[in-house]
Design a protein around this nucleic acid. Sequence first.
DNA 1: GATGCGAGGGAACTGAGTGCCCTCGGCCGG
DNA 2: CCGGCCGAGGGCACTCAGTTCCCTCGCATC
Lengths: 243, 243
Amino acid sequence: MSSSSEAPRRDEKTATAAKPPMRDALVAAAFRLFLERGYEQTTVDDIVALAGVGRRSFFRYFPSKEDVVFPDHERCLADMTAFLASGDDEDEPVRRVCDAARLVLRMYAENPTFSVQRYRLTKQVPGLRAYELSVVWRYERALAEYLRGRFAGRRDGTLQADVIAAAVVAAHNNALRSWLRSDGQGEASAAVDHALGYVQSAFGAAPAYPVHEQPEDVVVVVSRRDAPLWRVVQEIESTLGRG
Amino acid sequence: MSSSSEAPRRDEKTATAAKPPMRDALVAAAFRLFLERGYEQTTVDDIVALAGVGRRSFFRYFPSKEDVVFPDHERCLADMTAFLASGDDEDEPVRRVCDAARLVLRMYAENPTFSVQRYRLTKQVPGLRAYELSVVWRYERALAEYLRGRFAGRRDGTLQADVIAAAVVAAHNNALRSWLRSDGQGEASAAVDHALGYVQSAFGAAPAYPVHEQPEDVVVVVSRRDAPLWRVVQEIESTLGRG
DNA sequence: GATGCGAGGGAACTGAGTGCCCTCGGCCGG
DNA sequence: CCGGCCGAGGGCACTCAGTTCCCTCGCATC
């Protein structure tokens, strides 16, 4: 018929990337509309109309309307699990999951403007926040599963794995979000390193107290021989009392 | 007509709670169908047909189909924020958020069979898992906001607040889920106390290590006075070395 | 040139969620 | 005693996301 006259013209084999020409077009069209009109005010039909493709094709590339907002998380999650699976089990487990978390940051930092736009979007739209939560949850599960493997045999191994994974994710997100709030100014990795350093120092080598006892009874202090006295005193103080 | 003969009979002003006769009927009908036929295989029309009410009324009580699975979380969240707001800022912030988390556990423990059924449901249905995440996220935000208030002025206050809130939630959920997996056998609160104890010992009175130092600098071990010597030694060992 | 095949297009359908208006039963003021 | 107000609930029709089924076209292969 006379249809199909408008869109699929000059991008037959040229243009941007090599792999998915149409997927990117959908993302671009979607974000244009989301930004100028709002997420909920934009229907899938609007998007495919602007991209000049069929409605069915949208759902070929994105299982839901929400997925178009997070087009690269699937790949990033795969990268993370691959990284964790690459059997390099020499170093500290906690350090390793922190490194895994940095992969996510790198993805955000690759496209700062895109990331900031998406952040503004997800902050406003409850449905997108919920979707983002499920994405974050999958990252957290990946970290937790890795730690569970490393902690197998430890007493409370799964508990520690879950808690540390949650702490790593929370620290990462805290730094990431403050970077996103600043419109992607400054060095994101510095803030994340600092935040992850906090978690690592809290959980790093081993649990600081025996897990099952009351803290207030008696104290054993182990210190480096060359640690300054005031540091030792400060530590005892802050461990015991301190409001 | 001959309808409305079944349900709204002998509880006109008597019985259990005073407020919602029909809301509970909807929850009951929904769970009957969810359990015998599956969540996604059950339409809202099925539910309202079984409950003998109009479709429109369902959405009067529950903003979405998912909400009927978590009928009491809204109230529980309100309880938690009220608890945190009740200005009793005397004790440790971390202890206080742990107590707040115990409120959630109490809600689950009030109806063990219901909680276990719901757990099985959410474990299978991805949509319900996502919804549960958004619920949990709101609890976590409530805890984090409280801690941010208490930590105002501290260096890295918001970071610590977010991380601790996440750790508390993760510990709580770890214990809760293992209790749910065991069909609600045993004492749930004991497991949760233990899990929260872990978090409290990691973050409790004060950070176990100074936040910004390397962990191997100064370490403080606290033990009960009557703890067997071998336990103390084991703890020191695991704190210092241990791959 | 026939065949197969994969990518895309296009109805038509289901089901969640919403807006609008109707009814019914109780209550209150005239 | 009566008319009107009010709030809970019912019914209907609509939008839109997501799915199913089938068609077409281009392309490579035999």
